[in-house]
Amino acid sequence: MESWERSRRRWQHAFFASWLVLTSAGPLTEAGQVLPVVLVAGLAAWYAVWFVLRTPPPDDVPAPYVLGGGLLWLGLFAIDSSFLVVALSVLVPYCMDAVRVGLVAVVSCAGGWLWHRFHATGSITWAEIVVAPLIAISGATAVGYISSVSRQSAERKRLLDRLQAAQEARAAAERQAGVAAERQRLARDIHDSLTQGFASVVMLLEAAQATLPDNKHLTQALRAARENLAESRRVVRALRPGQLDECGLPEALRRLSGRLSDETGIDAHTVITGKLRPLEAQAQAELLRVAQEAVANVRRHARAKRVTLTLSYMEDLLVLDVHDDGDGFDPGRAAFGHGLSIMRERMEQLGGTLLLESAPGAGATVVASLPAAALSGAR
């Protein structure tokens, strides 16, 4: 892409230099003065300052360039009206990006040159009538060719940007799938080895305790085994949420809001909108944990009467928002806890975003969104 951009710039520079030389050489020779030479050199230097020496060159034509170039051209035109067609040199950067502007400028310069000859001599010769279309045709050809190169360059840039975005999305999805698969493998390995082993140890110790009920060391060993069994199960649950294995994300959210209602009396419910699509396992797990953390915050702080969990399947996004009608707060002044940071990190790791909207007395809304790339995997 950079090579195409450099090529476009080279054609622009060549167009500017050739047109400036062709249109100013004759008037400079006839004038025989120093000031026009200085102004032409100044116009060339002014162009170089803005488009040759700047790194990177500007994407758009800067207004200061047009103003300075226009003043230099007006100075030349005031000295000798033969410098009229030099105006196209100032407009060369526009000609590169807008072929219509370039064609209008070329035709205007050719017509202006005929007007100048008629104004200077009182008549127009057939040779001049032939030369004017040649000026217009040569300028229009240069404008058209260079604009074509510019359009090809822009189209290639768009295609390359789309290809790069697709490759990055695919790589991110593959990374997420790999992370999810590894978490599932770890969960299975821990469950099949450590958890099952601790369960067997607990059973053996319970059998031994039945025959030796007053053995202190046996009681301590049994307590330690039970604690480690519970810890291993907790790790397995953290790696692979059981609700998702059983029912999927929408139903897991419904169960979450149902438990909130049953345990607190809050009017909590879940809304699912859009057409359900397969969602990569890791994305499901992270969204569920965000919802659980948001609901936990409502329990602790909000004093809400109503909570709504909304999962929206859009064309290019999956959005989860948890809204409550509680006390609310000022996000700009509140000191956020560790939970919000963890929720934001979960979304950012998947290429998504997390927003928090609230105001004193107006409740709060946690909005987690994931791009379409995260929806490519199957549950």
Rank of each mutant, 00 (worst) to 15 (best):
residue 4 W to Q: 10
residue 7 S to V: 12
residue 8 R to D: 10
residue 22 L to Y: 07
residue 27 P to Y: 00
residue 28 L to W: 05
residue 33 Q to Y: 09
residue 33 Q to D: 14
residue 46 W to L: 06
residue 50 W to H: 15
residue 53 L to I: 12
residue 57 P to H: 01
residue 64 P to R: 04
residue 66 V to Y: 09
residue 67 L to V: 13
residue 72 L to I: 05
residue 73 W to Y: 07
residue 84 L to I: 14
residue 88 L to H: 08
residue 89 S to I: 04
residue 92 V to G: 00
residue 92 V to L: 02
residue 93 P to G: 00
residue 95 C to F: 02
residue 97 D to Y: 05
residue 103 L to Q: 02
residue 109 C to D: 00
residue 114 L to Q: 07
residue 121 T to A: 08
residue 122 G to C: 03
residue 130 V to A: 15
residue 138 S to P: 08
residue 140 A to T: 04
residue 142 A to V: 14
residue 154 A to W: 03
residue 158 R to M: 11
residue 164 Q to D: 09
residue 164 Q to S: 10
residue 166 A to D: 15
residue 169 A to V: 00
residue 170 R to G: 10
residue 172 A to H: 13
residue 175 R to N: 10
residue 177 A to F: 08
residue 183 R to M: 12
residue 189 D to V: 14
residue 192 D to K: 07
residue 196 Q to L: 11
residue 198 F to N: 01
residue 199 A to V: 00
residue 206 E to R: 07
residue 206 E to S: 07
residue 217 H to E: 15
residue 223 R to V: 15
residue 229 L to A: 11
residue 233 R to P: 11
residue 236 V to Y: 02
residue 238 A to F: 12
residue 240 R to L: 15
residue 240 R to C: 14
residue 241 P to W: 02
residue 246 E to T: 06
residue 251 E to H: 07
residue 253 L to N: 08
residue 257 S to I: 04
residue 272 I to F: 07
residue 281 A to D: 12
residue 282 Q to C: 09
residue 286 E to G: 07
residue 287 L to Y: 02
residue 294 A to L: 08
residue 298 V to W: 13
residue 300 R to F: 11
residue 312 S to Y: 11
residue 313 Y to E: 05
residue 318 L to Q: 01
residue 331 P to Q: 02
residue 333 R to F: 11
residue 342 I to S: 13
residue 344 R to H: 12
residue 346 R to V: 05
residue 351 G to N: 00
residue 354 L to N: 02
residue 358 S to Q: 00
residue 368 A to S: 08
residue 370 L to H: 06
residue 371 P to S: 01
residue 372 A to F: 04
residue 378 A to L: 11
